[in-house]
């Protein structure tokens, strides 16, 4: 076990943690770690089951189904980030959270920007048949 202490000697110098980093020595027991992951798995399974259930049910207002599925997906992504990748809002996690925030910004710009631009393009474009007529 002396080996272990030698390896971990450097890891407690700064208390900032990388995503997925092992916890500082003595912070949590193995049982607590396992319980944490099991809780994450249970939440993820619950949200997945909810997504499939919402998809098949008639209890939810029809036009709201797509939005409900999107919300469930985002919630499950959050669960994965917190329980498996260990991205938290703790002050020692600032770098990772800032990088994540920037990533989310770019993802939103790409996805919603593309949908927005293409929707307007479709809306304003001359229908294909009319275009063919004009070229004759």
């Amino acid at each position: 076990m002396s080996n272990k202490h030698e390896f971990d000697a450097g890891s407690n110098v700064g208390v900032d943690r990388a995503p997925g980093a092992e916890s500082a020595a003595g912070e949590r027991t193995l049982g607590q770690e396992v319980r944490g992951y099991a809780l994450g798995l249970a939440l993820a399974v619950g949200l997945t089951a909810a997504s499939f259930w919402v998809r098949g049910t008639t209890l939810v207002y029809g036009p709201g189904l797509a939005l409900a599925l999107l919300v469930l997906a985002v919630a499950q992504m959050g669960i994965h980030l917190i329980f498996f990748l260990h991205i938290t809002t703790a002050p020692d996690n600032e770098n990772n959270v800032l990088a994540l925030a920037f990533g989310v910004l770019i993802v939103c710009l790409i996805v919603f920007g593309s949908l927005w631009v293409m929707e307007h393009l479709n809306h304003n474009m001359v229908p294909m048949q009319d275009l063919m007529q004009m070229q004759r």
Partner: peptide, 9 residues
Amino acid sequence: APKRIVVGY
């Protein structure tokens, strides 16, 4: 920061 932190980041 220790190397583990830098690698993970």
